[in-house]
Structures are given as C-alpha cells and as structure tokens.
Amino acid sequence: MNTDLMHDVTFYVMYGALAIAVFITIERSLYFAYVRKQAARLLAQLTPAVQNERGLSEEVTARKSLPMDMVREVLKQKHAGGSRKDLDDVVETQYLASRAPLARSLWIVETIVTAAPLLGLLGTILGIIDTFKALASAGVSDPGQISAGIGTALYATGLGIAIALFCVVFHNLFQDRLERINDQLKMLLIRASMGARVTAPAELTPVQAPHYRTA
C-alpha cells in the first residue's frame, strides 16, 4: 500500500472540501440576502386590497424570486375565489415547498463538518506510517527527522479541524437565517391571503318528510 500517495490524496480531498464549502457559503449568503430583500419589498406592497398580481408593482413581479413565486400562487387562488379551506391549503403548500430551495446544499456543509476532522486524522495516521517506514529503511541518523515527519503528519489533523470549524460557524449562521426567512415568508403568505372573497359553503337542504295522501 502506497501510504505516501494516500496521504497526498487525503490533503487533496480536504482542499477540495474546503473549496466546496467556500463556494456554498458565498452562494447561500447571496441567495438568502436576495430572498430577504424581495420578501421585504412584497410585504410593503401586499395589502388586503390586492386581489391579484396586477395589484403589485413591476419592480417585484418582473424578477423571478422565491417569495414572488409563492405569492403568485396564493393570489391566483385568492382571485379565483373558492372556500377558505382551499386558500389555506394553497398557503400551506407554498410554505412547505419553500423549504427545499432554501435548504439546498446545506447538507453538504453539514457533511463536511463531520468528515473533515476524520479525513485529517486519517492523513495524520498515514503520514506517521510513512515517516516510520522511511526511518526504518534509512535508520535514525537525526532525531529531528522524526519530529519533522510527525509535524508534517499532524498538519493534516489541524487542517481538518480548521475546515470543520469554518463550516460549523457558517452552518449555524445559515440555520439562524433560515429560521428568520421562514418566518418572513410565513408572514408574506398570510398577508397575501388576507382580504379574500371566499365562497361560503352551501347550506345543506334538510330532507323533507314523505307526504302521504289520506283518503
């Protein structure tokens, strides 16, 4: 088994994981900021008098965004009429559907939090094995060689822990922002459903008693 090659591969995997984590961090930060900005604009314009999409400005309807997609479906149901239950079902459906786009790629960051220290430990073990193999074949002529080899091996553990710390900080930050955005979207959906002209359920006609003719 080529432990030297595996040691290098471990480092490449950790550097790749760090690059992926940085990319997701930047992408999610920009996406969350855009969603919050669009939701705030919609909240400022949605009133009970808005019955359809035409009641909103082109500034919010022209751009594709998660808040506008959610509100658009609610306004369609609101304009079409129907029972209050139908409108509530649309609101609940849109709220549940918003979770997947918001939480996209966060599981990768969570996975890196767990995997990075383990990869670092693996790299350290492989590095120590490779160091002792080299010393066994060449002999111990300088004790400093052992210290340098072990120090290089321990660098893998330090790198893995550093990557995990970076990811756990931003993962917790994203979870907090996710809760805030979910609350904002819930308020948005409730505001969009206000003022609906719902159709009352039809009253049931009582069954008339049979009429018998008498002689």
Rank of each mutant, 00 (worst) to 15 (best):
D86N: 11
E92I: 09
L96W: 09
L96Y: 12
I163T: 13
A116H: 04
G120A: 09
E110K: 09
G160E: 04
A115I: 15
D88H: 07
I146V: 15
P117K: 11
P101Q: 12
A103F: 01
V90N: 01
T131L: 10
I125H: 02
Y155S: 12
Q145A: 13
V90I: 12
L87P: 02
S137R: 13
V113N: 03
A153I: 06
L135R: 06
Q94F: 08
A103T: 13
T157N: 10
R104V: 06
L118H: 09
V140L: 14
R104S: 11
V140Y: 03
A115L: 15
D130S: 15
A162D: 09
I112Q: 07
I125N: 06
I150Q: 04
F170M: 12
V109P: 05
L173Y: 14
S141V: 11
L96C: 05
A153F: 04
T93N: 09
G158W: 05
A134I: 12
I129Y: 07
R99M: 10
F166K: 04
I163P: 01
I125S: 01
G149D: 05
I150L: 07
T124Y: 01
T93M: 11
I108P: 01
A156C: 09
A136K: 08
A97K: 15
A162C: 14
N172I: 03
L135M: 13
L159V: 14
T131A: 10
F170W: 12
V140S: 04
L121E: 04
E92G: 05
G139D: 04
V169H: 10
F174Y: 04
Q145F: 04
V91Q: 05
